[in-house]
Amino acid sequence: MTVVTLKPKRQHDGRFAAELPPAICSFHEAWVSYHSYLAAVCTHQGLSLRDVGKQLAREGRINVDPEWRRAVYARQLALYLTNTTLNVPQAWLGDIAGITRAGVCLALKAIEDLRDNGDFDVRIDLIAAELAAHTMVHERSAELGQRARNVQSALEAGR
């Protein structure tokens, strides 16, 4: 399965267009894309995907913990990228990330508010480039693996 990354449409003021086409993927593809974006965000920020998962699963009064805040930011950015590139419905994103629809809305709003910072779009482009590079390496690895299996099958057939 390949992850399709599209550059979202922007309005004249640089904000993402309000009207996007309907979701261009299935729920499973949205799930894979979200987790791919989360991994790319973690790589970009120097975070461990496993540690982020642990931080997000914690309970109690954790909103003052800087580690938890970094994990939440990574999740917010992954939600935002999945929503804007694939037009995944917020209800799906909530189910995928294990948060409420209101939580998804707040996450998207928080990231949209950060877009007022000039270098934020550069960070998004870097993350998208890292994901594209990771996807290309994965696809190339799968292609080489398939070639190796074909060669092995041909050798076994020739015996």
Rank of each mutant, 00 (worst) to 15 (best):
T5C: 03
T5P: 01
K9A: 11
K9F: 07
K9G: 11
F16R: 04
A17Y: 05
A17L: 07
A18V: 13
E19T: 13
I24G: 15
S26D: 06
E29R: 07
E29T: 15
E29I: 12
E29L: 10
A30T: 12
A30S: 10
W31Y: 13
V32Y: 02
V32A: 11
Y37M: 09
A39L: 10
A40F: 08
C42I: 10
C42Y: 04
G46A: 05
L47E: 06
L47C: 13
S48M: 03
L49M: 14
K54L: 12
L56D: 03
L56H: 05
A57E: 06
E59F: 08
I62W: 07
I62L: 03
V64W: 04
E67V: 14
A74D: 01
A74R: 00
R75M: 02
R75S: 01
Q76I: 01
A78D: 05
A78T: 11
T84R: 10
T85S: 06
V88E: 00
Q90S: 11
D95T: 13
D95Q: 13
A97T: 09
A102T: 14
G103K: 04
L106M: 04
D113E: 14
R115C: 02
D119S: 14
F120C: 12
R123E: 07
D125Y: 01
L126I: 06
A128N: 03
E130Y: 14
L131A: 09
H134K: 11
E139R: 14
S141I: 01
A142K: 08
E143K: 10
E143L: 13
E143P: 05
L144R: 04
Q146R: 10
R147G: 07
N150W: 12
N150A: 11
A154N: 14
E156A: 12
E156H: 12
A157M: 09
A157T: 14
G158C: 14
G158N: 12
R159K: 11
